[in-house]
Simulated assay, not measured.
Amino acid sequence: MKFVQYSGKGLTALKSTEFAAQSEKAIIEIMGKMKAGDMSLQAEAVYTYLYKGERYILDGHHRIEAAIRSGGTIEAIELSGMKMYGKFATKIEEIWAGLHF
């Protein structure tokens, strides 16, 4: 597990594990909070997963999409191997099966 920052191309290179499941209303609300510097966005971690050189979003899809649209930066916890498997088992198994590309 390590802490990373994503911005620009790094954000757009992240692969979603919830394709097209984000609420437009929630994304716009988060963009407003980002613009205002609202620290409440840091209350919950954004998790990404490194597998075979690709980075996948496990949790934080709305915040990542808001950062992409607003040109912002996201701090995340990057997982690899079996770390946090229990919390994200289904998504990790889908990644291993090649269901997210």
Rank of each mutant, 00 (worst) to 15 (best):
G8W: 02
G8V: 01
G8N: 01
G8F: 01
K9S: 08
G10Q: 03
T12D: 05
A13T: 13
A13G: 15
A13L: 15
A13I: 13
K15Q: 07
K15A: 06
K15L: 07
K15W: 05
S16G: 14
E18K: 10
F19A: 10
F19G: 06
A20I: 12
A21K: 14
A21P: 01
Q22C: 13
Q22L: 09
Q22W: 08
Q22E: 14
Q22K: 12
Q22H: 12
S23C: 10
K25Y: 07
K25P: 01
A26Q: 11
A26R: 15
I27E: 01
I27R: 07
I27Y: 07
I28M: 15
I28H: 14
I28V: 15
I28W: 12
E29W: 10
E29N: 13
E29A: 14
E29C: 10
E29P: 07
M31N: 06
M31Q: 13
G32A: 08
K33A: 05
K33T: 01
M34P: 00
M34L: 04
K35Y: 02
K35V: 01
K35E: 02
A36N: 03
A36Q: 02
D38S: 03
D38E: 04
S40K: 15
S40Y: 12
L41K: 10
L41Y: 09
L41N: 06
Q42W: 15
A43S: 14
A43Q: 11
A43I: 08
A43K: 14
A45N: 14
V46Y: 09
V46S: 06
Y47T: 00
Y47W: 02
T48Y: 04
T48S: 05
T48M: 03
Y49S: 03
Y49H: 07
L50R: 03
Y51W: 05
Y51N: 00
G53A: 02
G53H: 03
G53C: 00
E54V: 06
E54W: 06
E54S: 09
R55L: 03
R55Y: 04
R55E: 04
R55K: 10
R55Q: 04
Y56V: 01
Y56F: 11
Y56S: 01
I57N: 03
I57V: 11
L58T: 00
L58C: 02
D59A: 10
G60S: 03
H61M: 08
H61P: 04
H61V: 05
H62E: 05
H62W: 09
I64L: 07
I64T: 04
I64D: 02
I64E: 00
E65R: 11
E65I: 04
A66K: 02
A66W: 01
A67Y: 00
I68H: 06
I68E: 06
R69M: 12
R69H: 13
R69Y: 12
G71E: 08
G71Q: 08
G72V: 09
G72C: 10
G72N: 10
G72S: 13
T73H: 11
I74H: 12
I74K: 12
E75S: 14
E75V: 14
E75F: 13
E75C: 12
A76M: 14
A76F: 13
A76S: 15
I77D: 06
I77T: 09
E78R: 06
E78K: 07
L79W: 11
L79I: 11
S80K: 09
